[in-house]
């Protein structure tokens, strides 16, 4: 393309780069701000002096966390939940997606199951019936509430199914002639051919389980069983819900917390995300485009 070389065109380029730069910095700021707060001196952090850079370097907060059993307990619960939740969702989702990727001739119940899935994706019983159901199963205060109560990830299953359908038919046909059964075809041929989509969805489900706080809040009555996000939510955001709260009380309440220690906890909670971020980056564009697949 021939470049436009007029003055206004170049002025636009410069302004554009500056604006995009500022927008980009704004996206990095929360990370940087939390980091600065966590390594700042406690009194400086609590006095609200930290804005753009650390003040009075101190690692006290991180030292305190090392001996904080509750924090590590929640961290461990989140890790268990993320591994179990992602593993089960993926396995069940893949197993379900494969028969559904077949035509109605090959799997007669395909369309009925498909409509059932769509219906359950678009309609739900609401919070209270769901909560009472989980409670009746006796799952409250167990890790299985966190792993299973969110239900089958229907949309992800549909994405996997769409991908399975787009694979060329001949690879499977060759395996059928060699005498391979459906399980061998699925796990020996179809799954290895679908690594990009499976990687994308693994990351999505993993991020969901790591970031989810609400199930922890509602389904765990015992605070020692909170996953990390719920633990942090209780720590930093929680404000009493009584409606007699006055602005002055709100102000004092928000100044009570130990800013630097909380920031250190928040920062540690972000680290797993930052570690997988480069992988997320690589796959998620492909993942979003999967959602827009057309036949």
């Amino acid at each position: 393309m021939v470049r436009d070389r007029t003055f206004w065109s170049r002025a636009f380029d410069v302004a554009n780069i500056v604006i995009l730069g500022l927008i980009t910095l704004s996206c990095l700021y929360p990370l940087w701000y939390t980091f600065c707060l966590s390594i700042s001196n406690k009194s400086a952090a609590n006095a609200g002096l930290v804005t753009f850079y650390p003040i009075g370097f101190s690692l006290v907060s991180y030292k305190e966390i090392v001996s904080d059993i509750k924090f590590f307990n929640s961290f461990w619960i989140s890790i268990q939940r993320t591994l179990l939740g992602t593993g089960i969702s993926l396995l069940v989702g893949i197993m379900m997606a494969y028969p559904l990727s077949k035509s109605k001739d090959e799997f007669r119940s395909r369309d009925i199951i498909m409509w059932l899935l769509i219906f359950c994706m678009l309609f739900n019983g609401g919070l209270i019936p769901w909560y009472i159901t989980v409670r009746n199963y006796g799952l409250l205060d167990t890790i299985w509430a966190l792993v299973l109560a969110g239900g089958l990830p229907i949309f992800n299953t549909i994405l996997i199914m769409n991908f399975f359908r787009s694979l060329p038919k001949d690879i499977e046909e060759a395996a059928v002639i060699d005498g391979a059964g459906p399980w061998r075809i699925l796990f020996g041929i179809v799954v290895p051919c679908s690594i990009p989509v499976i990687a994308t969805i693994t990351l999505f489900v993993g991020v969901y389980h790591w970031n989810e706080f609400f199930h922890g809040l509602v389904l765990m009555s015992d605070a020692t069983k909170y996953p990390l996000q719920t633990y942090i939510q209780q720590l930093v955001v929680s404000i009493p819900t009584n409606t007699s709260l006055t602005p002055d009380q709100y102000k004092r309440l928000s100044e009570l917390s130990n800013q630097s220690l909380n920031a250190a906890k928040v920062f540690i909670a972000m680290i797993p995300m930052l570690i997988v971020y480069p992988f997320l980056q690589r796959y998620f564009v492909a993942g979003i485009m999967l959602g827009a697949i057309k036949e």
Partner: peptide, 22 residues
């Protein structure tokens, strides 16, 4: 194929369909 969709259907039944009764 039915065996393959079974775990997913059970999951769906327990946490999506049963709550609808509520």
């Amino acid at each position: 194929y039915y065996l393959m969709v079974l775990p997913g259907l059970v999951w769906l039944f327990l946490f999506s369909i049963v709550p609808m009764v509520g």
